[in-house]
Design a protein around this nucleic acid. Structure first.
Lengths: 259, 259
DNA sequence: GCTTCATAAATCGCATGCACTTGATGCATG
DNA sequence: CATGCATCAAGTGCATGCGATTTATGAAGC
């Protein structure tokens, strides 16, 4: 799980070797700060489970990996902690969040509430070009459904973000983005392996209801949809991650030795 | 001409002169990081309008005011920017947010959605001691209503935070906290001067409905309540003061940190 | 006198250094 | 053989320094 990186390969955000010292020009790049870049990269890595829950995230290693100083890494970690994807232990460091089932339920409760707002905001107010975008997205979801699970999951999340963005409400977008991220992590931890594509047709139905301006129906569909996703994820008990349980079979094997 | 500090006066969070260099002991204080302390103080100052919308927030001045380095100030500002209370202009600095009416509306939309969740979570599930706390809070609101406007506003916000905390849902608490802060700022900017105490009786009614387990009624009341709060929109402007002077009392408040 | 360019001041963005905390390791002891 | 204590290394928490960017100021030109 080491974050080590081969030198020169991932010199992405900043390469001080070029000038030996000078800070880089911040003006030309797309206004996106380095902190944000690192934050986004880490978030992606976390929700894709490339960084597993509980994994340590040392500032040094992260700065190293992205070619920045600890300052940037530290800031990114701090913000991810606010988002709930990272846990910060004082004087000990940062770790990938390891949400409990209860926390997961909390996140889903909030998500349902937020997406309810989204649905209400959008019902009957979608413009033709927006409808086209939505339809196309759902179509793509159908395409990959079944044979590309990773992409399928990504698109499913993207669908909800897309809706949020269409409201034009930036606050809403931010919160939905956050809960969707956290839900991804939770699903990855607790969800059943092959349950991702259940919701594709539901997405289509929601879009239909929104277009038809049937707000109540749309809300109902959305709520049911998320309820389904949540229960799929949270019903089953977590696959045991505790060291002792993992090692139990090995221990048993050894026990035979000293018997 | 600006960085100068009266020696010994605002040495609050950290005093490096004691040892000539060493960082302070972070271990003993109440687990609350300095960043958070500064962040909370700034937030309070902003929603109380001691720092007016649009006011510049230079890292140096803030670090100065709280007796910390720019590092801490910078981090606090960054987080407040995420919260939406501060606007960060690249290479220019931080400013107290100056939300437009449209942004204000967005915040209120989200707030209504979030508080709807709170209400639904709580209806019929309040325990006796929780009910007592709520009743007492509403009583206090009635007490100050009319003669202490600042406290009145504070208590009104606190009522909603209290409800959120009673859900036990930490995600919800965080989001409600954020939107309540932002709403405070927005009301302070656009709200009519003497409109704060309109909602006191409504708070009582909401509590009653929650206790009676009338979820739908409670949601309706809450929604109407927030709708009323949101719909008060007016304009006013104020004067500017020196950052350090405004922040001095807040810095004094967190002096306990370096004890 | 007003515009334009050059210089200076203020302040940000970021890297780095140093003290301190924390958990680990090894050793002595009951 | 388990327990307590000293030593150590890893890595955080924070302040500070340096270049870069932006804004303010003033001089020269039209």
């Amino acid at each position: 799980m080491s974050i080590r990186v081969k030198k020169g390969a991932s010199r992405s955000v900043n390469d001080p070797t070029a000038k030996g010292k000078g800070p880089p020009a911040a003006g030309e790049s797309g206004t996106i700060s380095r902190t944000e870049a690192v934050q986004d990269a880490l978030r992606q890595a976390i929700i894709e489970q490339r960084l597993q829950p509980g994994a340590k995230l040392p500032e040094d290693a992260i700065g190293d990996a992205f070619g920045t100083s600890r300052t940037i890494a530290r800031e990114a970690l701090g913000r991810l902690a606010v988002e709930g994807l990272v846990e910060l232990k004082p004087n000990r460091g940062a770790f990938v969040a390891n949400p409990t089932l209860d926390e997961g339920r909390d996140v889903f409760v909030v998500r349902r509430g937020l997406e309810r707002i989204v649905t209400e905001c959008l019902s009957g107010k979608l413009k033709p070009d927006e409808i086209a975008v939505l339809r196309e997205h759902v179509a793509r979801e159908h395409e990959v459904s079944g044979h590309n699970e990773v992409e399928s999951i990504r698109l499913a999340g993207e669908f909800h973000l897309l809706l949020a963005r269409l409201t034009g409400n930036h606050v809403l977008v931010r919160y939905v983005t956050e809960v969707v991220s956290r839900c991804s992590l939770i699903l990855a931890m607790y969800g059943r392996p092959h349950s991702s594509d259940c919701g594709v047709s539901e997405h289509g139905e929601i879009v239909d209801a929104l277009i038809a301006g049937k707000g109540a129906r749309a809300v109902e569909l959305m709520d049911h949809h998320l309820e389904a996703v949540a229960s799929r994820a949270l019903l089953q008990q977590k696959t045991e991650r505790d060291i002792r349980d993992v090692l139990a079979p090995y221990a048993a094997r050894i026990k035979g030795l000293d018997a």
